[in-house]
C-alpha cells in the first residue's frame, strides 16, 4: 500500500531544510515534507493545526541537559515519531529521547532508509492497536482514564471540575480531551454524549 508519511522539519537553517527536502523527495515518493519551521516557537504556534507522522528536528534547539522532555516540548501525540537531525555533538541524555538520529554526513539514501525504518515502527504500532481494538470492541481504543474524562465531559463538567474530580491538572484534562477527539472523530460535547450513551457509559 502506498502510504505517504507526512513530515515536519524544524531547523534554523533554511539551506539545510531545503537540502533535506530536495534529497528526500528525489529519493522516495513516500515522504511528503508538508511543514517547515525555523524554530521551536515557530513550530509551537502551528502545533495544534498540524499532524505530522514524523518530526525531524535539530537537537541543538533543545536544552542539552534534557531536563524537559522533547515530547513535552513538541507536545505532539504519542504516534508522532521524532528524529534528530544533528550536525554537532549532542548529549547522550538528549539523544536517547529521539526515535532515530540522522546526520548531515549521511547520504540521502541512508537518511531515507532511517526515516523509513522509524516510520515502519509507526505502522506496526497501529497494526497492534487495530488488533487490540478488535479484541475489545467495547473500549474503542480509549484508555480507562480517557473514558473517565469522557463520562465527565458528557455529564457537562468543565475542564476545571473534571480536573478536581479526577485529581489531575487542567493541562492533563485538555490533553485527554484532545486524544478523545482524535480517536473518536467527535468534537462537540453533545456528540460525545451520544457516544457515551450508545456505549452505555452513562444513563439518560
Amino acid at each position: 500500500m502506498a502510504v505517504k508519511f507526512r513530515i515536519a522539519i524544524i531547523d534554523p537553517s533554511q539551506i539545510l531544510r531545503a537540502g533535506l527536502e530536495t534529497s528526500l523527495s528525489q529519493i522516495s515518493g513516500k515522504f511528503q515534507i508538508l511543514w517547515s519551521f525555523s524554530s521551536l516557537s515557530h513550530y509551537s504556534s502551528f502545533a495544534d493545526e498540524i499532524d505530522p507522522d514524523i518530526i525531524i528536528v535539530n537537537p541543538a534547539l533543545f536544552d542539552p541537559s534534557g531536563a524537559e522532555t522533547i515530547k513535552s516540548i513538541l507536545s505532539n501525540t504519542e504516534d508522532t515519531r521524532i528524529i534528530a537531525f544533528s550536525y554537532t555533538h549532542t548529549s547522550d541524555i538528549l539523544i536517547r529521547q529521539f526515535d532515530s538520529v540522522i546526520s548531515i554526513y549521511d547520504t540521502p539514501a541512508e537518511i531515507a532508509l532511517k526515516i523509513e525504518k522509524t516510520a515502519g515502527s509507526l505502522s506496526s504500532d497501529s497494526d497492534k492497536k487495530y488488533q487490540k481494538q478488535s479484541g475489545h470492541p467495547e473500549s474503542y481504543d480509549l484508555s480507562d482514564r480517557e473514558l473517565e474524562v469522557l463520562v465527565s465531559v458528557a455529564k457537562g463538567c468543565t475542564n476545571k471540575e473534571i480536573a478536581g474530580i479526577h485529581n489531575i491538572s487542567v493541562h492533563t484534562v485538555i490533553s485527554h480531551r484532545k486524544n478523545i477527539v482524535r480517536k473518536t472523530g467527535i468534537k462537540s460535547v453533545s456528540g460525545l454524549t451520544v457516544y457515551a450513551l450508545l456505549n452505555g457509559l452513562i444513563e439518560q
Binding site: G185, S190, Y195, N199
Partner: peptide, 13 residues
C-alpha cells in the same frame, strides 16, 4: 462540526 460528529457516530459507533 456537529454534522461531522454525526457522520463519525454513524460510521464508527
Amino acid at each position: 462540526a456537529k454534522l461531522s460528529d454525526l457522520k463519525n457516530i454513524l460510521l464508527k459507533y
